[in-house]
Design a protein around this nucleic acid. Structure first.
Length: 352
DNA sequence: AAAGCGGGGTC
DNA sequence: GACCCAGCTTT
């Protein structure tokens, strides 16, 4: 990374001209009021938060009022915002502040982080905005701005990447106007440097933004590596039994999946069990029972197994030498079986 | 259909 | 420390 000298001044100058400064929590910026807004804004966008915030402040104008309220009442005011654990944490934290901190927020980030529901980023937001403390935030907006400005090549979800971004965030935090800078960075991410369709032409950082110099700035932040979704295959498994309580097993070829194990006769999922069994084994079917389908997952694909229990009479067909073999139900579990076949057979055996 | 959000809880 | 979760939006 190659940090830029005048990063903060450019961001602040932009904020002075274009930033939002009259949102409900941007006037009378007490730690309490900033705190509530930050928690609400973690999960919801500004337009939605405003009415909630105003009602909340009327109901609980001070940390004492919040601490004294019933949880019921707090949750009622949160109703519709989601993430209710955060409202509960907030209520808990209010009590801690009143009981242990004389209703004042601690003056260090570490201290504020001790409160339930507040981590490093939220603590820094509260202290920088309400008290001008020189502490950087790293919320989703700031992550996006920094990831783009430096074209950070790795996913911010990785610990290593996150550490790098925290360093960048701290590096750019100025020593003056810390609160404005925090607001400015959030604004920049929320209004210009948006996830899709960023307005690079209006951005004060455009000239040095490394993402801007690529084909597509929205390629940053690098997206979460999506676990390649595994292909799905479907097969029918046949548990074929005769009047002597034997089950027909099929020897797998030595190579490939389940090589050399004894498995069950298989059938494409769209084939008719009746027609197939009658033709393959020249026999008559006494009875078919569909068993419960289940999924077996390999390292590289899902196998959806549709098992049927087929009772048949005498087998007349000449079967390939050694490929098929009858085993007594009492013996079959001693064979080398693929795990899903073992599971399936153990259920059938227990029924018999 | 899946990622993103900031912190908490679990192992 | 790595991973999953909450609950709703956005893509």
């Amino acid at each position: 990374m190659q940090p830029v000298e005048n990063f903060a001044p450019r961001v602040l100058a932009w904020f002075d001209k274009y930033g939002r400064k009259n949102l409900p929590w941007q006037v009378n910026k007490t730690p309490y009021r900033v705190w509530i807004s930050e928690i609400m804004l973690q999960q919801t966008q500004v337009a939605t938060v405003i009415p909630y915030y105003q009602k909340f402040m009327l109901a609980f104008p001070t940390v004492e009022a919040l601490a004294e309220a019933d949880q019921e009442e707090v949750l009622a005011h949160w109703s519709g915002l989601g993430y209710y654990a955060r409202a509960r944490n907030m209520h808990k934290a209010a009590k801690v502040l009143v009981d242990d901190w004389d209703s004042q927020f601690p003056d260090s980030v570490e201290g504020v982080c001790e409160l339930p529901g507040i981590g490093r980023s939220t603590a820094s937001a509260i202290l920088s905005i309400s008290r001008g403390v020189q502490a950087a935030i790293l919320d989703g907006n700031v992550k996006r701005v920094l990831a783009r400005f430096h074209a950070v090549p790795t996913w911010p979800g990785e610990k290593k990447t996150e550490n790098i971004m925290w360093e960048l965030a701290e590096h750019y935090m100025p020593s003056e106007r810390c609160g404005d800078y925090t607001q400015a960075m959030m604004d920049l991410g929320a209004t210009l440097c948006t996830r899709s369709k960023p307005q690079c032409l209006l951005c004060p950082l455009e000239a040095d933004c490394l993402a801007r110099q690529t084909q597509d700035p929205t390629q940053f932040p690098v997206r979460k590596p999506k676990k390649a979704l595994k292909p799905e295959k479907r097969l029918q498994f046949l548990v074929i039994s005769n009047d002597d309580n034997q089950v027909l097993m099929e020897k797998r070829p030595q190579t490939g999946i389940w090589g050399g194990l004894w498995s069950l006769p298989e059938l494409a999922s769209d084939e008719s069990v009746v027609m197939h069994v009658e033709q393959r084994f020249q026999t008559n079917i006494h009875n078919i029972t569909a068993l419960t389908a289940f999924r077996h997952t390999f390292s590289h694909y899902h196998l959806d197994i549709e098992p049927s229990h087929v009772r048949i009479g005498e087998v007349n067909a000449v079967m390939e030498e050694g490929k098929y073999q009858w085993f007594a139900l009492s013996d079959v579990m001693t064979l080398g079986l693929p795990a899903p076949v073992r599971t399936l057979l153990s259920e059938v055996v227990s029924i018999e």
